[in-house]
Design a binder for these strands. Structure first.
Lengths: 159, 159
DNA sequence: TGATTACCCATGAGTGCCCATGGTATCCCA
DNA sequence: TGGGATACCATGGGCACTCATGGGTAATCA
């Protein structure tokens, strides 16, 4: 199925509009009315997803037996802090300036695909994040083919 | 099964198009719509693979219990940093100039088969890398027949 | 009443699609 | 065995379409 891939840097214009990349809109579907955005828990970025995905998170919360503090945190910060933003006719959104300011977005936004969701970053902060992530990968000698091999052997081992 | 073998150096034209070697396209399959490309974690090159291979990596990530930092790294740099590039009618791709620039590709690209995936290099940097890799192999006295023998004894030993 | 939002239209750069060509390797025939 | 024909591959060019960007106006809201 279609997933959010790649990263794009698009401009924010004087009216605060920014184009959601066409490939992300394609993943969202032609009948998508917009997206949902909220502050990321782990990074200095915004998390973005489809409305359906937020509903999935909501259902997941009901099913799991989460600790009350975690439940409360998610209820307040994620659901309380999320905004649903419609597309205009050209596939643009207007980012609430309060959210944009929390992550340092001024005149450009980086959209970063994360398969089921995506993130919105200040492009410079994203570059810094990426650079440090790659340094860590080199230091740990991470290999994608090893990850695939481990996942395969986990299945065969009857794990 | 078919694997990516050999290396080829092809030209990049004024429109940024470059032919994917015919044997690589054959491995990908006649119904392949294109390839996926992302920055290599370990080398100054791009990693290339089929769309199915990226899906395999995606499934592997879901199956393994990776450390959160490693998961985050792969989600952002590999999936966020990958692009799905379609073939044109003649089996060419257009490399995004942002990716091409990170590895110093200007007017030629070296395609290097790595069995299940392949890499894209600046041809000169590939030559330098190969030279230093061969020096390291001689220093470590690497023998291909020893590798085969060790793998065979590992299988028979019921490891 | 002013600011903001929604809706509509326009434009240029880049992309996708299509067609053409030259070179090389392979195959077939004399 | 050599030459010609054919097929395949890499390379080059042109045109239509898409995408991101920009602007204007009317409606809505505070």
């Amino acid at each position: 199925m279609a997933v959010f891939l790649s990263s794009f840097v698009n401009k924010v214009d004087k009216k605060g509009r920014v184009s959601v990349p066409a490939s992300f809109r394609a993943v969202l579907g032609s009948d998508a009315q917009g997206i949902v955005v909220f502050r990321s828990l782990q990074q200095e970025a915004l998390d973005g997803c489809s409305i359906a995905h937020l509903e999935l998170l909501s259902e997941s919360l009901e099913k799991l037996d989460l600790a009350p503090e975690m439940f409360e945190l998610i209820e307040t910060t994620i659901f309380g802090g999320s905004v649903q933003i419609p597309f205009d006719g050209e596939g643009r959104i207007v980012l609430p300036s309060s959210l944009a300011q929390t992550i340092g977005i001024t005149d450009e936004v980086a959209f970063v695909g994360r398969r089921k969701t995506f993130q919105l970053w200040n492009p410079q902060k994203l570059t810094e994040h990426d650079t440090s992530a790659r340094s860590a990968a080199r230091a740990q000698d991470i290999s994608l083919s090893k990850i695939i091999a481990q996942a395969s052997s986990k299945i065969e081992g009857g794990a």
